[in-house]
Design a protein around this nucleic acid. Structure first.
Lengths: 364, 364
DNA sequence: GTGAAAGCGCTAACAG
DNA sequence: CTGTTAGCGCTTTCAC
């Protein structure tokens, strides 16, 4: 019985052919190409092999290597959405650290749907990735948004979840310090003299938004300001509903003079709804957003900046640690945030507008 | 000589163990698990195998499969930047089509640097991906931005480049129809009565921006309006320089009453620079952007919308075609664009603001 | 210093 | 219907 592969397209040159061409054994080729230490190779042989490989355009097969050595040096990063500064920076941070450690990171797009996400994980594991980073979609109101990761974790796969700590009981989690960030934002408003401060969040449910609310509460408490739940909007909504809702908010006795918003887009919506009703920002209504997306800069929006690249790097570091110490209990790491003050809370000189992102970066 | 793997961590259950547990041969396990047609398996045997696989939590090894069958069913997508609606939608489009055809798409982040990009390609080929999609960074002023892809193409790897047709001589390219899009935008301005229309582009050099300029010229010519190069700014710049430059532009005799900008961010910068000098938009100066990013909506910016998901789908379709017909000459495909009219060219009723993107989508 | 041989986990050809 | 066997491309052990 001969194995007949004639019907298959020969895909590439293999190390046997290199060996033949160089007049050495396959093992020698392997020694040379992998620079295996503890193996001495004569300079002459080495050169012969190198030349042969070059001439034949030999390309090592990582699959075969992975099968044999049971090591692929690949990590997968799963995300349901990639289109924001946040995701892009996080991804870059993750890649940076993992690459430096000899890993290659593949980003995998998966629909925001637990069965599909589970299927994606299964596929990645069939490809024998050594670890999985998941960037949660913080906007989705579900506890344990990454429950579908649990089986992988329990089988000993190194995993890390970004931007959702509600799975912190079983998997390493990295979040920006949303409590501190929110507190910072609200303390900023308080320091400007505001006492009636509203909380406005477009979504509600993930740990991320819960933390931002918690930070809001803490800041008020620390300042001795009574919390008025009438000032807190905690529901998914859209631009049209926001306008209606905002009217209701501002019609109460003793209405808010400032809003802390759970996201930049919520802040933008609130801002425009307010301006449409004739209010001036920041004089009549001060507004703070969250995330400091690019557009916060050219909409002059005060916002809490998450150190997103650092979040990515922290996730990668945790993953590498996990690979080394599979049995260590799961860790939740919080990455510090900054407050970027702009004209939606404090009137700014015009020149501040010159600090916008350069049009040469990013996509047109 | 026995091959001693004892020092290695056993990574997972293999099909031999499943076979043993089910009391059948390894081949039978393969037949059952791959549902190979033309092979009949008794219901009883099938069930035994399925049970054994389940109990042992058997996970097929795609690497071994790839080595043997010389087929990985994986495609790589290389991007230097992911943080925009454009990239996210394109990626989604690519994945959609390729997944439907049984492929899995891995996104690979690579620094915008030819040697590094070449290295990335090499690595991907070592992983035996069957094809490569590259999303060009349209903002970078280099001809043949994907020259580093040429070796791969010449070796017969299926490749496709998105958003840059300057490599169209050797690789399949998919761009949005920037000429038509730009023409549409400028014709819109002309139809509003503008005759002195400026072209403002933050970057210059990639085919993308060249096409936008070309569309601008075409529209003027078709309307019988003389092109005045004094109205065309074609250089990389930043917000501060823009303000200075804009002053110069508006100080000439017979200054422009409208600007067509090569990107949304350029448009935003021009808009704010104009407003800072006391001009009102759109009355004193009408402005059109390009790309229709999310923030164009809540900055009431008229913009040309690229059908980005369709661009991704088209790229994937071209790649699949290329896999089937390796020898076909390269193709350049243009995907149609739309013009979204907003308040920066035509005063809009307030309610148009209610059409903003929903805060529930995307990242906070 | 170098090579022969074993075998990673899998599928395909062919025999029964 | 099912099993035997060869071998994908590679690395590593061990002998020379």
């Amino acid at each position: 019985v001969t194995y007949n592969y004639k019907h298959m397209r020969r895909q590439s040159v293999n190390s046997i052919e290199v060996a033949r061409k160089a007049g050495v054994s396959q093992a020698t080729v392997s020694y040379v190409l992998n620079n295996r230490e503890g193996q001495s190779i004569s300079a002459q042989t080495r050169q012969k092999v190198l030349d042969a490989a070059q001439e034949l355009k030999y390309r090592p097969n990582k699959l075969a290597d992975g099968v044999l050595r049971r090591k692929t040096s690949t990590i997968a990063l799963i995300a349901s959405w990639l289109g924001s500064d946040f995701h892009s920076s996080v991804t870059k941070g993750v890649c940076e650290v993992l690459n430096a450690d000899g890993y290659h990171t593949f980003v995998s797009w998966a629909k925001l749907d637990p069965p599909q996400q589970a299927a994606e994980v299964e596929l990645l594991l069939q490809h024998r990735v050594e670890g999985i980073v998941y960037i949660s979609d913080g906007n989705h109101p579900q506890e344990h948004a990454a429950a579908w990761l649990r089986p992988a974790v329990e089988e000993g796969i190194a995993c890390a979840v970004i931007d959702d700590r509600s799975n912190g009981d079983f998997v390493d989690s990295i979040v920006s310090d949303d409590i501190a960030g929110a507190r910072m934002a609200v303390e900023h408003l308080i320091s400007l003299g505001h006492r009636r401060i509203g909380f406005w969040s477009a979504v509600w449910g993930s740990s991320t938004y819960g933390d931002r609310f918690e930070g809001y509460l803490q800041a008020l408490r620390l300042a001795g300001i009574a919390v008025d739940t009438k000032l807190c909007a905690q529901f998914p909504t859209n631009a049209r509903l926001t306008a209606i809702e905002l009217h209701r908010f501002l019609a109460i006795t003793d209405p808010p003079t400032a809003f802390f918003c759970g996201s930049d887009i919520s802040a933008m919506i609130v801002r425009h709804a307010a301006e449409d009703t004739g209010l001036r920002v920041p004089d009549d209504l001060a507004i703070v957003g969250y995330s400091n997306q690019d557009y916060a800069a050219f909409n002059d929006l005060t916002s809490v900046s998450q150190n997103s690249a650092e979040i990515g790097r922290a996730a990668a570091r945790l993953l590498l640690e996990r690979l080394k110490h599979p049995e260590r209990p799961p860790v939740v790491e919080r990455v510090a945030t900054d407050l970027v003050v702009r004209g939606s809370t404090v009137p700014q000189p015009k020149r501040s507008r010159f600090d916008w992102p350069d049009p040469g970066s990013g996509q047109a």
